[in-house]
Design a binder for these strands. Structure first.
Length: 288
DNA sequence: CACTTGACCTGTCCGC
DNA sequence: TGCGGACAGGTCAAGT
């Protein structure tokens, strides 16, 4: 579930918690695929290194270290990055985290800092990963070379947005929105939400959309993602922020996971069906 | 190259 | 209550 707004929320949380901390050591728990680097590299380039910054590109998190290496992290569907330390969960602090004692049975990677605080990478389904790479090589990995522009950047225009879709002219608009090489960071939740906002049926072919419809979809996508960041993301099942707390965008969702409920615009019941390989939520009255 | 489908995993929920 | 199957959805490999 983590899409751009969720990863951005984690990024902001971690930036405030990790920068300046020095790593004591790092290890995986019974899931080498989750942390595929060699133990030699992990020891050499992590132990004793300090965190200089936390960045996000598309749905990928980057934690930069003084060793010249960066942790490149993808949460995929069920990944969580939860920080635990005295400053957040000291005596007397209310603990409203969704997550209990850590590590738990979904913990795959543990990073221990010299002040005895910890960063836990949890991932129930083991699709996500933490990779250690030289910072200067990060832009050269396949994903970074192929991924499309950041949709929330100030200089990303409606015209650029529309132009990006030319490569997917013959597919449907929902599949194209989910294609990370078209625009970065859109996943199932915000695809459905923005298509509802723009009154576009997800099954429409890209080439059938007018320039006005692209302009509307651009505006709706940016609005819905900005609102989601403001609400700390969407917690459907697994997603939590860097402190283990849920996001509240689902309280504001108009169609996602609202099958059977009334469309906020026209009161018609929202329907759900499988499309582009995903659960898809639509108001068939509004979305044409 | 454009496009679609299946695989990767595990926990949960639904119907029998 | 047990059990099989569907489902969840980000990305990539392999298929047409």
């Amino acid at each position: 579930m983590p899409e751009l707004p969720e990863v951005e929320t984690v990024k902001r949380g971690l930036a405030g918690l990790l920068v300046g901390k020095v790593i004591q050591n790092a290890y995986h728990i019974e899931s080498p695929k989750s942390f595929p680097n060699s133990q030699v590299d992990i020891t050499q380039f992590m132990d004793g290194a300090a965190v200089t910054g936390v960045r996000r590109r598309a749905k990928v998190l980057l934690i930069d270290l003084t060793s010249g290496y960066s942790l490149v992290i993808h949460l995929k569907m069920t990944g969580q990055l939860v920080f635990r330390g005295e400053d957040v969960f000291g005596a007397g602090h209310p603990n409203d985290s969704l997550i209990g004692e850590l590590p738990d049975r979904s913990t795959r990677v543990v990073i221990k800092f010299t002040d005895d605080s910890h960063l836990y990478f949890n991932d129930q389904r083991k699709f996500g990963w933490v990779k250690l790479l030289p910072t200067i090589e990060v832009p050269n990995i396949d994903f970074m070379k192929k991924v499309g522009p950041e949709p929330l950047e100030a200089d990303f225009s409606a015209q650029q947005f529309a132009d990006r879709f030319s490569r997917r002219a013959n597919t449907n608009i929902k599949a194209a929105l989910l294609d990370q090489t078209v625009v970065a960071g859109v996943g199932n939740i915000y695809a459905d939400e923005s298509l509802w906002g723009a009154k576009i049926d997800p099954r429409r072919l890209v080439k059938s959309l007018s320039s006005d419809e692209f302009a509307l979809l651009y505006a709706e996508l940016r609005q819905v993602m900005n609102l989601a960041i403001e609400k700390g993301g969407s917690t459907d099942k697994n997603y939590v922020n860097a402190e283990g707390k849920r996001g509240s965008y689902m309280d504001f969702a108009r169609v996602f996971r609202r099958e059977g409920q009334a469309c906020p615009r026209c009161e018609t019941a929202i329907i759900k069906f499988k499309h582009a390989g995903r659960g898809t939520h639509v108001c068939e009255q509004c979305q044409k």
